[in-house]
Design a protein around this nucleic acid. Structure first.
Lengths: 340, 340
DNA sequence: TCAATTTAGGAAACCGATTTCCCATAAGAT
DNA sequence: ATCTTATGGGAAATCGGTTTCCTAAATTGA
């Protein structure tokens, strides 16, 4: 395309000349500083407007030693959750006139280091590390300046580094309570693979909600899948439907598991939600479009992105940085699979 | 965290001093320019290494009037496809030492304009516009410098602007031919909503493959869904199974439709792929994890991203820019739903 | 009224690189 | 031996802003 943009070449000197003042006065006027009379300021502003002046951020960065850009390095190959968080980060950051520079590390430490060095050479003001792996190794010491860091979707025990993750425990309580409030009495739980930390948190939330309601936690109603996939949910559903007495609800540790479970239940003629209510966890995009749209505990992905962005901006501006694990509350999305 | 990075503050002047040369000589040595003796160059390089020197890209940009950064503006709220394309763009671009600055326009023209202005103020060298909507309105004229633009996942008829999109027509041929090669004779087609352009392209690909193989295009075997969702695929599947003679294959214009179709077929006791083979289109992440893993025509998302990145780098470097619609070939992912 | 203080605005330094320009010195030509 | 011509390297300009510093005029105070 390469259309022309006259404004590209307009510098502050052009503005100053048109307004009949010096470069420095023009700068002061444009940046609302003192020691400029109202009349002069207005003349400069008018001139800038007339010339469609927009300051060169590169030059600003050089002098101010602040680039108004943050780096975001992601681990993620699949990208199922990434986009929503990116949107949140961008939204939080753009309102402070920051931009995000995106990189992929593909989970590779060497690549991560190379990207960090590149970002630091660009004088970024902060970094968000977005990824799935629990991280205790920290960042390569050699590359880090005094640039604040926030972890997103992974938590860390490093001192001085805040992290933002979903409140899986609370979310599981929410999902279980929802079923209890609907009057369901025997609530099964289909969990994901045990080597994930979330599976513990979600099961404990389920247990906690039951016990708080004075119901016993019955291990016979808890199923564990070897993987998160729908197929494994289907297998769990088959086990479930062979119980002597069918539960009147199932809470699943992921939407894909829940969909598999519903599939198995449908196959054996059990009706969802009439015979048995189903609730998932994650709020995947496709969960709304199942034959029986799935009630689910939604991960607050966008809110997490927003919080991470705000924490980082805050650290950049105030130079204080606390090491806190922020667990952002999940929220319930009610659809047909749990009844009305 | 804010660890220390001694290297942050190392400037070329420090390197020059350590090597016992002037700033300008150091710069020439580091940039492999002429008029520096081999001995001196080596001394400078050693000094740079010792100090862990990394040039300040902001300063470089200011002088060179090239930021080695491109802007990427996306339309996309859902982000089902975005991430893969982003990965491709990043991969193509990073190998030329460029970075991506990411922005969201949320499909809003005013916001798009604001983001573009921000990016131009940052002196970006090029722009990729990533989105779903056919775009003929062009970019707001006022904001554009002579910055090259590439459209990704949307095509345009604007002069001088290349666009990168999937080859839906060719992909549909591929999917249909796959079924023909497996010996299937009566191949039905389940299409998406007619007001999308892709639905025409995919149907025409289906038709073309049939006619090329000498088979008639039978409108009675073509179904049209009002939406792309699984539920609508389920409805199409019900129509399908009520045909006097069941087809021995179905080609669906999306994976979600195909999954709905398989659901309906399973319900009525028809076996996939024995009684009827199913092929989808898109290659969504969940398609591999259905009860019957879905054979599908994959969108070449990452390759599209790579191509868009390369086209843009090329336009930046060579300052030539052609207006071509690049249709990137799809590829077939064989799974169980079409048999072996 | 005169000194002290504010205020307004300009000149110049600065951020950290690259690049132009210029000047020694060494090499080559006659 | 002298006159070019390369070659290596440094001084200074430059990119486009911000910021410091300084000075003249205006205001205030005694």
């Amino acid at each position: 395309m390469t259309l022309r943009n006259p404004s590209t070449k307009v510098t502050i000197l052009d503005v100053a000349r048109l307004a009949g003042v010096s470069k420095s006065t023009a700068s002061k006027a444009l940046n609302n500083q003192n020691y400029v009379s109202e009349a002069t300021r207005q003349r400069v502003l008018d001139a800038a407007q007339k010339l469609n002046f927009s300051p060169n951020k590169v030059a600003q960065s050089l002098k101010q030693k602040r680039s108004y850009a943050i780096g975001l390095i992601t681990d993620d190959l699949e990208g199922l959750f990434t986009t929503s968080m990116l949107h949140g980060v961008d939204e939080a950051i753009i309102s402070h006139n920051f931009n995000v520079i995106l990189c992929n590390s593909f989970g590779d430490a060497a690549r991560e280091k190379a990207r960090l060095e590149m970002l630091l050479a660009r004088q970024i003001d902060g970094v968000i590390l977005l990824g799935y792996k629990v991280r205790e190794r920290g960042l390569p010491a050699l590359v880090l300046g005094d640039v604040p860091v926030v972890y997103l979707y992974q938590y860390t025990v490093l001192p001085g580094v805040p992290s933002v993750i979903p409140d899986d425990f609370g979310g599981a309580i929410m999902g279980t309570q929802h079923l209890l409030e609907l009057g369901r009495r025997r609530i099964a739980f289909v969990n994901g693979p045990p080597h994930y930390e979330v599976t513990h948190l979600r099961r404990e939330g389920y247990r906690h909600a039951l016990e708080t309601a004075g119901k016993p936690y019955d291990p016979n109603l808890v199923f564990t899948s070897r993987k998160w996939h729908q197929n494994f949910g289907y297998d769990a559903g088959k086990q479930l439907r062979e119980l002597a007495e069918l539960p009147d609800a199932v809470f699943c540790a992921s939407d894909s598991l829940a969909i598999g479970v519903m599939d198995a239940l449908h196959e054996s003629g059990h009706r969802v939600p009439d015979d048995i209510a189903v609730v998932g966890f994650d709020n995947r995009p496709y969960s709304a479009h199942q034959r029986r749209p799935l009630t689910t505990v939604a991960l607050p992905l966008k809110a997490m992105g927003v919080l991470a962005g705000e924490l980082l901006i805050d650290a950049i501006m105030n130079e204080t940085h606390e090491s806190v694990v922020h667990r952002v509350p999940c929220y319930l999305v009610r659809r047909e699979s749990s009844g009305t």
